[in-house]
């Protein structure tokens, strides 16, 4: 069609660019200036914030904690989600679409509300804890507030529904006929899953995992609400540094490190996947 397409693109492009460059430039520039207190920044260009960050185990621990939590949560999400996505994608009954719709609807609900529910479930005097105490399965009530495990559960709820939806789309792309072929050739169901389905789904699983990892790295809500000031992941630390300490420079430095770490992990994984694919291409 002969409409002026580039002209369509211009207004949104200019606006997006202005907002992106405007906000990020102002903010990231701050990482190269010293904090003078009450939100003011020094004039001179300096690397002092970065030096401080890499010399201080407090900041490094927070970075390491964020990466660890994100990796573990992502792995959990994938382990839980892949079988669910596979079963739903292969389901022939009319309940399939209903179950899928339930997952999508659950992904619609904001994480703040889900954390509220988690707090009620893990309340010290709640039904779950009373039941477990009575059964003698635990000696102390299971709580999540201020605990790393609790934050991991919160992160799991942040990504799970969405990642299962992504994995479902991945599973749909694997033709059913391949499975039938494998079984007709005598493969057991388990062997078929390991040798046929999983390798085919792997690129999609890894891509979904990366999205989940990115979401976790940037996740603020569950970490802030469940961590209760004790579990300081990088996003929580950024918010505290800016709001409570009004250190915009240090906050920006932490944000740069968060962005760069996330980017580095993504690049590494993409590299790994392409190496994997190349290796498979040679053996095939």
């Amino acid at each position: 069609m002969t409409l002026p397409w580039p002209r369509f693109l211009l207004p949104p492009l200019v606006l997006s660019l202005a907002l992106l460059v405007g906000s990020m430039y102002v903010f990231l520039k701050g990482s190269f200036h010293a904090d003078l207190g009450v939100g003011r920044l020094g004039e001179a260009f300096t690397l002092a914030n970065y030096r401080k960050l890499f010399a201080d185990s407090f900041y490094l621990n927070s970075l390491w904690l964020t990466v660890q939590l994100s990796a573990v949560t992502t792995l959990l999400t994938i382990v839980v989600g892949v079988p669910v996505a596979y079963v739903l994608a292969r389901m022939r009954s009319r309940w399939g679409p209903v179950l899928l719709a339930v997952i999508v609807a659950a992904s619609f609900v904001t994480i703040v509300i889900k954390v509220l529910g988690l707090n009620i479930i893990f309340a010290a005097n709640g039904g779950l804890n009373r039941l477990l105490l009575e059964l003698g399965m635990i000696a102390q009530p299971l709580t999540i507030a201020g605990k790393v495990e609790g934050v991991a559960i919160g992160l799991l709820y942040f990504t799970l529904a969405f990642i299962v939806i992504l994995l479902y789309s991945v599973m749909l792309t694997i033709p059913r006929s391949l499975e039938e072929a494998a079984q007709n050739l005598g493969a057991s169901r388990w062997r078929m899953h390991w040798r046929v389905i999983l390798p085919l789904a792997l690129p999609g699983i890894i891509a979904s995992g990366l999205i989940g990892f990115n979401l976790c790295m940037g996740a603020f809500t569950s970490a802030a609400l469940i961590g209760a000031g004790k579990i300081l992941t990088l996003p929580v630390l950024i918010q505290r540094t800016v709001i409570f300490d009004t250190k915009y420079g240090m906050g920006a430095t932490l944000a740069v490190v968060l962005l760069v770490t996330g980017l580095a992990v993504n690049l590494l994984s993409i590299l790994l996947v392409s190496r994997l694919n190349a290796a498979r291409g040679m053996t095939a």
Binding site: S23, V26, G218, F220, I238, Q239, A252, L259
Partner: peptide, 12 residues
């Protein structure tokens, strides 16, 4: 990350 966007817009 949304936290970064929040701080950045505040400063902007």
């Amino acid at each position: 990350p949304a936290v970064v966007t929040g701080v950045a817009f505040l400063q902007l």
